[in-house]
């Protein structure tokens, strides 16, 4: 009886997983069919899966090196922005006059697309890496700050009541109550910020990098080596997906209590 139930549950799960793969398989098949069976199969602009995966395999060491270079920009920019955005968001969201002072400013500055800062940042900073870190920082800071400050300004009354009863001072209130209470907001900002960080990173690398994922794609496009270019796009997609999945995993572990 239980055995059977278990079996049916697994069966059901299997079907659901299968559904998720449908589009991948369908698009892959389309790709295969259109490149091998239609007359455009020898076009260099549209490499077949086999050619692309060969290119991916060949340039794997170079891609790994590019990933390292890109992450040396992404990680410092991203985590500095998350830490400062969350801290400042908690303070600005909790202290009334700071909130009133920062809210209008954030409303004006946060929506500016951070890509417009790239040329100036490159001109302003001594190295490309520092300018790219700065751009990623700006891009991630605002979504984290805005989300956190909004959450901190609207901490549920029940948490404030309990903090009062327990005799928390202002700092203790921020650290022990506001910070955990706004963790869902911080993670929401982090998700938006991470997607944005990858966009900013690759765009910045198109402008002026010597290595990195965006640079890889740009470089082989310049030399019309489209199999490698497509391989670079697929690889970058994979790295982005992997990073988002990792963030999602961490988020679920940290926010276990959110129902």
């Amino acid at each position: 009886m239980t055995q059977q139930q278990h079996h049916s549950v697994h069966h059901h799960k299997g079907i659901k997983g299968f559904e998720g793969l449908l589009l991948f398989v369908g698009i892959g098949l389309c790709w295969q069919v259109t490149t091998t069976m239609l007359p455009l199969h020898d076009s260099t602009l549209y490499p077949s899966p086999a050619v692309t995966f060969k290119a991916l395999q060949d340039s794997f060491p170079e891609l790994l090196k590019g990933t390292l270079s890109s992450f040396l920009i992404l990680i410092p920019g991203y985590f500095c922005a998350v830490i400062l955005g969350a801290m400042w968001g908690i303070v600005a969201g909790t202290v009334g006059w700071l909130h009133r002072a920062f809210d209008p400013f954030a409303k004006v500055v946060a929506p500016v697309p951070p890509t417009v800062y790239i040329p100036y940042a490159i001109a302003l900073m001594p190295t490309f890496r520092i300018s790219a870190i700065l751009v990623v920082f700006i891009g991630v800071f605002w979504p984290v700050f805005v989300n956190t400050a909004a959450g901190a300004a609207a901490v549920p009354l029940r948490y404030r009541d309990n903090a009062g009863i327990l005799g928390f001072g202002r700092f203790e209130y921020m650290w022990r109550v506001v910070f955990p209470a706004v963790l869902p907001n911080i993670f929401a900002g982090m998700s938006v910020g991470l997607a944005l960080a990858f966009i900013l990173l690759t765009v910045a690398e198109l402008f002026g990098a010597n290595e990195g994922l965006g640079r890889f794609v740009q470089y082989y496009a310049d030399y019309a080596d489209y199999p490698r270019m497509v391989a670079g796009i697929l690889y970058t997609g994979g790295v982005t997906f992997g990073s988002m999945a990792l963030l999602d995993f961490v988020k679920r572990r940290v926010l276990f209590w959110v129902r």
């Binding site: 029940r158 948490y159 009541d161 309990n162 009062g164 009863i165 327990l166 005799g167 022990r176 109550v177 955990p180 963790l183 209590w257 959110v258 129902r259």
Partner: peptide, 30 residues
């Protein structure tokens, strides 16, 4: 409010991100 007057609310006296022991430890610390 201060700790000379403890309050029990209808159903939201505990912090959901802390386990029961840590919810009490906060009070014991005070």
């Amino acid at each position: 409010p201060n700790i000379t007057r403890g309050v029990v609310f209808q159903d939201y006296s505990l912090f959901p991100w802390l386990n029961l022991r840590d919810n009490l430890v906060i009070a014991i610390n005070k």
